[in-house]
Every structure is written in C-alpha cells, then in structure tokens.
Amino acid sequence: MASEQQDAIEAPAIGRSRHFVDDILAEADIRINGDRPWDIQLHREEALDEIVARQSMGLGETYMRGDWDVQAIDQFIYRILDSDLGRHFKSWRHIFPYIRSCLLNLQSRRRAFEVGEHHYDLGNEFYAAMLDSRLTYSCGYWKEAQTLDEAQEAKLDLICRKLQLEPGMKLLDIGCGWGSLIGYAAQKYQVECVGVTVSREQRAYVAERYANLPITVHLQDYRELNEPFDRIASVGMFEHVGRKNHRAFMEVSKRCLKKDGILLLHTIGKSKPAPTDPWVEKYIFPNGEIPAASQITLAAQELLTCEDLHNFGPDYDKTLMAWHDNFERNWPRFADRYGRRFYRMWRYYLLLCAASFRVRRMQLWQWMLSKNRTDSVERIC
C-alpha cells in the first residue's frame, strides 16, 4: 500500500460532537470514526458541513484535501448508493448541471480535444502501469477470465467475433485509445484498421507499437470522418459524445459504413438521462456525459437497425478493482511526479466508479447496429 494512503488512514480521528450526518450514515451502516473498512475516519469536522452543502463535489474535494479517509472507499460509496442516502440532500443545485447539458453543446468540435489533453495525455508510462499489457482502457469481459489481461483479450476477441471480421476487411475504431482493438484485429483477423483519437500521446504510442501492421491513426474529431468501412467499432468513446451530438455520431457511422456494414458501440450507460457527476466532470472527464438507452435508440432511429444489446456492467466493477490494484502497487514510481493530491483524486475516481457499477447505477453495454442488412446479425456473447 502506498505511503500516502498509510499516513492518511493511520492519522488519528478527531474528537467531535455528534452531527446529523451520523444519523444519515447509520442508515447505510456507516459509522464516523468506526473500526470497519467502510467506516469514515474524520480528520476535520468542518468537512461534514461542506459535504452537506456541496454533496458529490464536497465529498470528493474534502477527500482530495485529506479531511477524511476510508480504508475501503469502494465499500463506503457502495453503501451510500445502495441505501440511496442522496435523497436526504436533494436541492436546487441539481437542476443547473442538467439545464447546462441541455442548452449547451459541451462536446462541440472546439471542445473535442479538451478531454484528451486533460485525461488521456497524462503519460503513457502511467497508464501502462495501471492497465493490461495492451493498454485497454475500457471494461474487460470476465466470463471465463481470471486475470486482467485475459479479460481484456476476451473482450477484444468478443468484439471481433461480433463484427464478423474477415481478412481483407477495413475496420474503423472511433476513439481508438492506445490501439488495443485495432492492434488485435490486425494481428488476429488480418484486417486493415483506421483509428481516430483526440490524444496526441495515444496516437504516438500506436504509431510506434504497431508500426509493422496495416494500421493508420488520425488525430481528429470523429465528425470529420468521411470514407467507407466494412465495420466500425467505438469502445469507451461514446461517453464523450454528449446528448447534443448523439445523432451526429450515428449519422457519421451511417455515412462511413458500407452496405451490410456493422457498428459495435461499447459504452457505459445509465437508466435515464442525467448530467455527469460534477466531481467526475471537473477532475476526471471534462464535458463527459453517460448516455441513457433511450438516447441511443433515438439517435439511431431511421439511420441504423439495432441487432443486439448486451449488458455486462458487473464486469466493470472487476475491471476497475484490477486497475486500482495495479495503481496502488505501482504508485511509488509516480509519487514524486504527480503528488499526493493526484494520488487521492485518482484512487477516489477508480473506487467511486467501481462502487457505481457494483450497485448497478451504471451499466456497460455493447450495441450491435447495422446498415441496410437483409439478414440479422448473429448474437454472440
């Protein structure tokens, strides 16, 4: 365990008066300064008032500052979500992020590269230490896997089989990341691959690692695409598209798919349209927005045909916990470069997301969409 985590958890809890938050947390069997892994250890009493006033943002920022600690953040957040403690803090604050996402195009072409610069360009060495050997930054498929590498390779092969890839086909990967899918598809299925990304670090990595394969990666916005492909995949990128651009994404996909073409859309999803958690948007994924199934269906209407919808959301909990284990184990290599505040931010991000998938607040979907097919696409799980 990293020294920063040890220091924080071993810091003495403060003497304090009872706060009404004690009673709220008790509904989730959480005690302030208790001795169980999910009990919060409070180091600054004023943090409770800040959490009440600012809710999700207050909880995340007070943790980043070191105002409180929990040995198992994932268990702590899971209990909060499972008991729906947020109902005690509903306020007018929730309406403004929703109105903002409805009125403004937070994912316009002008903003398209912000998430790449803020999140994905942290450094390839950092992500290599946290992810699997192929640097696959999306949910693994744990049906028969025992390790992170096995789960990610199983996911890549599942995608290739769903797309019915054959030698000589041309595959487009919208939001290709560090090239795990296009690298795997080119190696194992002998297809020509094109990827697009908004991260310079990712583009440079793919160009170097897969220099001997028929792979081309462009640093560009997906809306600029206009060439034909047999198949299209988008894995973990649709979360950056935003409600104002869902239809445009489907129009681009239809424009670029050949007759009988297939699109596989791999995305995090939630039950109803709602703005992104404000802490996550500010510190992790600027301008991100998790789609609802209704939004995806409406965006594809009269453009593409839905052939299949596969949900394996619980697998993201396992994936995130594996990333967290790697992050903790390798953190000493990066402590001087990124610092204690980043450590606490990143740890909170990974475990917050794991808890959200564990309680089924978020899902992981693979949508199969086709263009002008007279036959159905075989369902593969």
Score class of each variant (00 low, 15 high):
residue 294 S to H: 13
residue 26 A to Y: 08
residue 224 E to H: 12
residue 132 D to L: 03
residue 298 L to E: 10
residue 219 L to T: 07
residue 283 Y to L: 07
residue 184 Y to I: 04
residue 344 R to K: 08
residue 61 E to F: 11
residue 215 I to M: 02
residue 145 A to C: 03
residue 95 I to S: 00
residue 224 E to V: 05
residue 134 R to P: 06
residue 35 D to T: 08
residue 236 G to R: 09
residue 245 N to D: 02
residue 101 S to I: 05
residue 129 A to W: 15
residue 332 P to L: 02
residue 45 E to G: 04
residue 6 Q to K: 11
residue 125 E to S: 14
residue 177 G to P: 11
residue 281 E to Q: 09
residue 29 D to M: 12
residue 67 D to H: 15
residue 206 V to D: 03
residue 244 K to E: 08
residue 26 A to Q: 10
residue 259 K to V: 08
residue 79 R to T: 03
residue 160 C to F: 06
residue 193 C to V: 00
residue 34 G to K: 14
residue 27 E to I: 10
residue 22 D to Y: 04
residue 4 E to L: 11
residue 4 E to M: 09
residue 169 M to C: 13
residue 219 L to C: 01
residue 114 E to C: 04
residue 292 A to S: 15
residue 252 V to G: 03
residue 129 A to R: 14
residue 121 D to P: 14
residue 223 R to V: 04
residue 93 R to T: 00
residue 332 P to R: 13
residue 253 S to C: 15
residue 266 H to Y: 08
residue 311 N to D: 14
residue 284 I to S: 02
residue 265 L to T: 02
residue 361 R to F: 05
residue 326 N to C: 01
residue 342 F to V: 07
residue 238 F to D: 00
residue 38 W to R: 10
residue 88 H to E: 04
residue 42 L to S: 02
residue 11 A to Q: 15
residue 370 S to C: 01
residue 91 S to W: 07
residue 298 L to R: 12
residue 6 Q to E: 11
residue 358 R to G: 02
